[in-house]
């Protein structure tokens, strides 16, 4: 369960970023590669725990799962990997040595509360 440690880093990073911009986080967008070694569901529940009691409590975690893409030396093409064997070329089954995508574990963006604009009524 290293997802909790990762969620704690994520919350710390998001709070820092929001404070720097004088705002509050509505949602955090995370890019998560299927080869990152982090389980989406575990990260979701860890996020809830980690954000409890912080300014992120109640904010949403939106995870964009990134599928794997390798360069297959045999096919001489960029290929997805197999569903059951995530490190092998989907087409010819050769084990991958060059990963182009799929290891992502990053805070991609934050949805922040916009400063309230004056309306006609309270102007």
């Amino acid at each position: 369960m290293h997802e909790l440690s990762i969620a704690l880093s994520l919350v710390e990073m998001a709070i820092e970023e929001a404070e720097r911009r004088g705002s509050r986080v509505i949602a955090a967008h995370v890019r998560l590669g299927v080869l990152s070694g982090v389980v989406k569901e575990a990260l979701m529940s860890a996020y809830e725990m980690a954000s409890e009691g912080t300014s992120l409590e109640g904010s949403a975690l939106i995870i964009d799962e990134i599928s794997a893409l390798i360069h297959c030396a045999v096919c001489e093409q960029d290929r997805p990997t197999r569903r059951d064997e995530r490190f092998a070329c989907e087409v010819c089954g050769t084990p991958a040595t060059e990963f182009l995508r799929g290891r992502e574990l990053e805070l991609a963006a934050l949805e922040l509360a916009a400063p309230e604009l004056p309306t006609l009524e309270n102007r």
């Binding site: 990762i6 880093s9 994520l10 990073m13 970023e17 911009r21 509505i26 949602a27 967008h29 995370v30 574990l105 990053e106 805070l107 991609a108 963006a109 934050l110 949805e111 922040l112 509360a113 916009a114």
Partner: peptide, 10 residues
């Protein structure tokens, strides 16, 4: 809300 890019490794 507004969306700001961060792009940092967790």
């Amino acid at each position: 809300t507004r969306l700001v890019e961060v792009r940092q490794h967790l």
